[in-house]
Design a protein around this nucleic acid. Structure first.
Length: 608
RNA sequence: GGCUCGGUAGCUCAGCUGGAUAGAGCAUCAGCCUUCUAAGCUGAGGGUCAUUGGUUCGAAUCCAAUCCGAGUCACCA
């Protein structure tokens, strides 16, 4: 049980004994004590004062006295300042946590929740390569899935490939007209980039055609509708839906190129899925549900035959679910897919990692699913994240202002290599180890950069300023890990029995020289306090779907270790017992750093 | 215009279920490598928490209004 829960339980018990009153854990707060005060955790009692008719100081004092006398094995001291009850947790609590867990590489994982969760992320369009925004999406989704797993959920990672539609036809038309049969092989281009180039080409030609029509005296609106290349794309979509063999063949050929390219990128960034859905196979889903909804009275039909849902009572607008021509719209597919997903996996929760521009869409989608009574509807959750923007504004494929994912990753790896060479600490590395290190550092820096901020906040990326390798970065944390591993290699791992014995001998003061050595120095205890919080961090990050909590935690832990490292010698500790203690703290820290970074998809090196 | 989200140090961000003197990193300045990795450590300066009012023992945090920015409100996806 977490220390804060222990404290909370003790406080509730104390109040019931002292004042014969029952309290709710929400009636008071437990915070970590601020560094300028004495103590480890602080009970904030103000909210109880009125109910118990006590002064803050009086109540805090009585609680402190009771806790330290009735549970002296847990609470070793207390003080009261301005109504805050500062408690010192007994050293034995921290040292026993250490001896139980320091060797446990999976410390922090939660008990199984016996619950399935689906996480959908990435959702690329097959008409262009992935860009920086997709990376944020992928990293977020992948990391959330891992965090949920660590918290004890069973997770299904899914992806929906948006592989059909007018935008796909645009790159197909342009390729057909202007590529002269160019292939990834003939050009040496990655398939997704090749296809993306023709999507851009389409935009250029279209723009030019529109300009020409306008020059001939047509209105812009009219010109946009009549541009020949657009008409061609629309015709191609019709042909695709009709299953015209040459169109289907072209579509299959170009999509295969794109998937090949995506596969390389996913492999490079370490992304993977348990199941991929294809829009081309799911876009007709949901039609039955429209009929069902009409029968149930959830939907209504307008005079022109189109079908709608009225969400005005929920504070939203009316939303169309079937066009007057009988075809379904985007949201209808999503309703159908939601049903399909539930029928296939029966997940209690279904998380959609999609940009915040679709907030409204997902609000509507969930509402409709609920009104239709779909079994998974209440578990639907939109993990909405902010767009990655450039200083000049949003990235636009057509304007060539996108930061390409492959370029970005390779640039980061190059930067890691350059920096590593400058520092010259890698004597004795094989060529393969070096390549691996550069990738670990470069990719780590990029992932951390995108995951360290609150997902829902939009972020601005300035390509002029390279991503930092100092401070609040993956590199910093990776460095801490490499430092610890270096020590552990030299000093050897701590044997459990030896450690247990060492810890029991810690309070010794056996020789006069040692009397001034406390069981735990401030920084030693700070590390143990931080390590104790790890399971709680995983749990909170899982519930809130927020990897940035894990990133912040790993950084704080690394910071604390570096301060400890600078202040206290591990190999040259004052006593053999202290050395054992510090080695064990170091080992446990290395495990937690590796594990927490692992939840972000970031590896940590043994040496760097 | 309706709805939603955001505005905290020069920059990038924590803190937001109300709690002690608002914290990190970057940048700036000053120190620290004769034994565990200086990709590090220690310290300094830097704030009208957008504005105004309210709620109360206490507000960056909650409420209201205003200003600024973004998104969305398609028979597009």
């Amino acid at each position: 049980m977490a220390i804060t829960e222990l404290i909370s339980g003790s406080v509730i018990n104390a109040i019931s004994v002292l004042y014969q009153t029952s309290t709710d854990p929400r009636d008071f707060q437990i915070n970590q004590t601020k560094p300028e005060f004495e103590g480890d955790y602080t009970v904030v009692v103000f909210a109880l004062v009125k109910k118990l008719r006590k002064s803050p100081d009086g109540l805090a004092g009585e609680l402190g006295k009771y806790l330290t006398t009735s549970q002296s094995e847990l609470f070793s001291a207390y003080n009261v300042i301005k109504g805050f009850l500062n408690l010192t947790i007994a050293d034995a609590y921290w040292t026993s946590l250490l001896s139980e867990q320091y060797h446990n590489p999976i410390y922090g994982r939660g008990q199984t929740k016996n619950q399935k969760v689906m996480v959908e992320y990435s959702s690329p369009n097959t008409n262009k390569p992935l860009h920086l925004g997709h990376l944020r999406n992928n990293f977020l989704g992948w990391s959330c899935a891992e965090i949920l797993k660590a918290a004890g959920y069973e997770v299904v990672k899914t992806c929906i490939a948006n592989d059909r539609g007018i935008h796909i036809c645009k790159s197909m038309v342009a390729w057909k007209k202007y590529a002269h049969g160019a292939t990834p092989e003939s050009t040496g281009l990655k398939g997704d980039h090749l296809v993306g180039d023709y999507y851009v080409k389409f935009g250029e030609v279209y723009k030019q055609e529109v300009a020409e029509l306008v020059a001939e005296g047509k209105s812009t609106e009219q010109a946009e509708k009549e541009a020949p290349i657009m008409l061609e794309a629309q015709q191609m979509l019709v042909d695709w839906e009709a299953g015209k063999p040459d169109v289907i063949a072209l579509w299959e050929k170009m999509n295969a190129w794109v998937y090949e390219g995506f596969e390389q990128t996913y492999k490079l960034i370490g992304s993977n899925f348990d199941k991929t859905y294809y829009e081309s196979q799911t876009y007709l889903l949901g039609k039955d549900l429209v009929e069902e909804g009409l029968a149930k009275g959830v939907f209504f039909q307008k005079d022109d035959g189109s079908v709608w849902i009225d969400l005005t009572e929920d504070g939203l607008d009316q939303k169309i679910v079937r066009r007057r021509d009988g075809t379904s719209v985007y949201i209808t597919q999503d309703i159908g897919l939601a049903e399909l997903k539930y029928n296939e996996y029966h997940c209690k929760q279904s998380i959609y990692v999609v940009g915040d521009e679709q907030n409204y869409h997902f609000k509507v989608l969930k509402l409709i699913c609920q009104k239709l009574g779909l079994p998974g509807a209440d578990g639907m959750h939109h993990l909405s994240y902010g767009m990655v923007e450039l200083p000049t504004g949003r990235m636009k494929t057509r304007e060539g202002t996108v930061v390409d994912a492959d370029d970005m990753v390779l640039e980061m790896i190059d930067m890691a290599e350059q920096k590593t060479r400058e520092l010259g600490k890698v004597d004795g590395f094989t060529e393969a180890e070096l390549v691996d290190l550069y990738q670990t550092l470069g990719l780590g820096a990029l992932k951390f950069f995108l995951l360290r901020v609150d997902p829902k906040k939009r972020m601005i990326f300035n390509p002029e300023e390279s991503i930092d390798l100092h401070g609040f970065t993956a590199t910093f944390i990776q460095y801490v890990h490499a430092r610890i591993k270096s020590i552990l290699r030299k000093e050897g791992k701590v044997d459990r029995a030896t450690l247990a014995e060492g810890i029991t001998n810690l309070p010794v003061a056996a020789t006069p020289l040692l009397t001034s050595i406390p069981v735990l120095y401030k920084l030693e205890k700070d590390l143990l306090i931080a390590l104790e919080q790890y399971p709680g961090i995983i749990e909170t990050a899982a519930v809130t779907h927020d990897p940035s909590l894990v990133a912040g935690y790993a950084f704080r832990l690394g910071q604390t270790f570096n301060s400890f490292y600078a202040e206290h010698s591990i190999a040259g500790a004052e006593t053999p017992e202290k050395k054992l203690l510090r080695l064990a703290i170091s080992e446990m820290t290395s495990h937690v750093l590796k594990s927490s970074m692992g939840l972000l998809g970031i590896r940590v090196p043994e040496r760097m």
